[in-house]
Design a protein around this nucleic acid. Structure first.
Lengths: 202, 202
DNA sequence: GTGTATCTGATACAGGTGTATCACAATCGC
DNA sequence: GCGATTGTGATACACCTGTATCAGATACAC
């Protein structure tokens, strides 16, 4: 037996390097060599832990999703119990908006992978769409809870409201990353949307 | 003087080739050679009409924007006068949804360029953001008109409604291109949104 | 210690990339 | 017709890409 390093940890470190390179220079700038340099590691090591570039990108996507789930449940844990439906919705919006560097990177990578998935169907689509659906149903659940609390009008179609929320969130996030809007302006638009949903009272 | 070909026409043909390649294989598959092959033209000719790849991509972006403007005004021309504010909004949503192959290509290219603009600030940002702002203000005007007609509640913030519409439209379009939703489902979500704006009566 | 399985560094290879060069064809003013 | 200007084909160059290879470290079981 040799050095016995934890492969999962190494892979996570390399995935982080991918994220940093892509957030800085774009996903097209992610090459085996640029990732190796970013992680301060030899090219061979990247090859060792990811047999191909496709595997590297695929692994990074899974890494991102796991991180996203962790951040999301951390945010939920901070919320006062029992959950208010509105609080969950606002937490979701705050989380996904590219306000700080971490969420900026996350959103940028998400958009990059989405574009890839548009023309590389089988490769990136499966985990990608699955993640989106998961999020959407979680959000729909929160909306349903809000309806039960009497916070949200019962005549609203929760699944469509969830779809609308994710869509608006993705769209407004993109506009921030592209430089059309500041994060503050984007937040105002989102707050406007939530106010129109729940009523502006709070 | 030599053959005297119309450079603008040639450039437009090459830009169309870029669009076809990108819509089929992704923007990363757009190379000087692939564009030449798609346009059934020599590599040299692509080089002749676009001095560099950056210029090719830049020119294609401008070409797309011009096309988008033309399609948009064609749709407006089909509308019964005087414009109903709601009709303008619905025309906008119908236009931008990736339902047919043309709008699919348009939306896919738009998303790809958006991702590029996120990390190539100065290059693609200027025309890109300008186009978005133009569209947004046009939409805000239509909403204001609807308010004047009494179609739309006057207490609504038209600029935020316009931002919301564009965001939701972009987000839902992406979900279609990624394969999460069909165009029909997306249209239902959009119609839901418009109904909640104007009232479901019609 | 020693051997063996795990890990790693250096380097090579074939293919694709954007770009440049050079000679030649095509066209029009005169 | 002639010659200058514009357009075009073939080809070469340097660089970067993903991937493969091969010898040599490293660290534990025994």
């Amino acid at each position: 037996m040799p050095k016995t390093v934890d492969h999962e940890v190494r892979r996570a470190q390399l995935a982080d390097a991918v994220v940093r390179v892509a957030a800085r220079d774009g996903l097209h700038a992610v090459t085996m060599r640029s990732v190796a340099a970013e992680a301060d590691v030899s090219l061979r090591q990247v090859q060792y832990y990811f047999r191909s570039k496709a595997e590297l990108l695929h692994g990074t996507l899974r890494h991102l999703e796991q991180q996203s789930r962790e951040r999301w449940s951390a945010r939920l844990a901070e919320l006062p119990r029992p959950y208010s439906g509105r609080a969950v919705v606002e937490a979701f919006l705050a989380e996904a908006l590219p306000s700080d560097e971490v969420s900026r990177a996350f959103h940028l990578l998400g958009a990059s992978y989405a574009v890839l998935a548009m023309t590389d169907p089988d490769l990136a689509e499966q985990p990608f769409v699955a993640g989106l659906n998961h999020l959407e149903s979680q959000l729909a659940d929160a909306l349903r809870a809000a309806q039960a609390e009497g916070d949200l009008p019962v005549e609203l179609d929760v699944s469509r409201e969830a779809a609308r929320l994710i869509a608006i969130n993705h769209g407004i996030g993109t506009s921030v990353l592209v430089g059309q809007r500041t994060a503050e302006e984007a937040e105002a638009v989102l707050r406007y949307h939530v106010d129109r949903l729940f009523g502006s009272s709070g």
